[in-house]
Design a protein around this nucleic acid. Structure first.
Lengths: 110, 110
DNA sequence: CTTTTCCCATCGTCTATCGATGGGAGTATG
DNA sequence: CATACTCCCATCGATAGACGATGGGAAAAG
């Protein structure tokens, strides 16, 4: 009798959200997840099993760099930073996303 | 050297788009695809290999009914109509979608 | 010392989208 | 008549993305 829980994310938007988050400065994985959750008022709940594979993708594509360091809480953490290619990618994904949203809205308001 | 073509759809939104389209009246598969393409100014391009499986899903879930008939062009066509459950589903998906979009925007504008 | 919090990561599963493919039935063309 | 084209259906196999479960390890809190 529980209500159906909607998915935690709009599929296809995770890379965009991560890139945008990193555009504000270097951050580690756990911090990215927290930032998304808080900024979205608990709506966007990125599980770690979605997050880390996504970060691997971004690394492989050269959109982010990674380096090990210590967190604010003195823990071993991997810090990610946006590359120049990452910024371009962010802009491109942002454009495509907006384009899609506009298109979808046209249908929903028709 | 071609530019990367963005995907034709925002994943996870196809059911919503179909349900919304059918809320305007009964329609056959091909017509739904046309309607989405035209209403969105060619942005939303639903391939038939995405569309028909989606319609099967909706049928299985009891959100639409189907009956065979003849199209305006006198062709054999399968007409779909929204059920009561389908209307409820449309409302629910619409709410979740709006919720997501608001959340994503908070991140993108942060 | 035990528990909790923070932070990393992978594996297997599931679901959805998509390209390719195939077909049949009406209409228009030459 | 023969051919081509448009309309309309559908499936299959590949790919990709998100998720639940799981497993660690190291610092801090109790």
């Amino acid at each position: 009798m529980g209500k159906e829980k909607p998915s935690d994310l709009l599929p296809g938007t995770l890379d965009l959200l991560i890139l945008k988050t990193l555009s504000r400065g270097r951050m580690h994985g756990y911090g990215i997840a927290e930032h998304l959750k808080q900024t979205s008022a608990d709506v966007l709940q990125v599980g770690e099993s979605s997050l880390y594979p996504a970060l691997q993708r971004l690394l492989l594509n050269g959109w982010v760099n990674a380096e090990w360091g210590a967190s604010e809480n003195n823990r071993r953490a991997r810090y990610y930073t946006l590359t120049a290619a990452g910024r371009k990618q962010l802009d491109a994904e942002r454009r495509d996303f907006d384009r899609m949203i506009v298109a979808i809205h046209k249908v929903l308001e028709a």
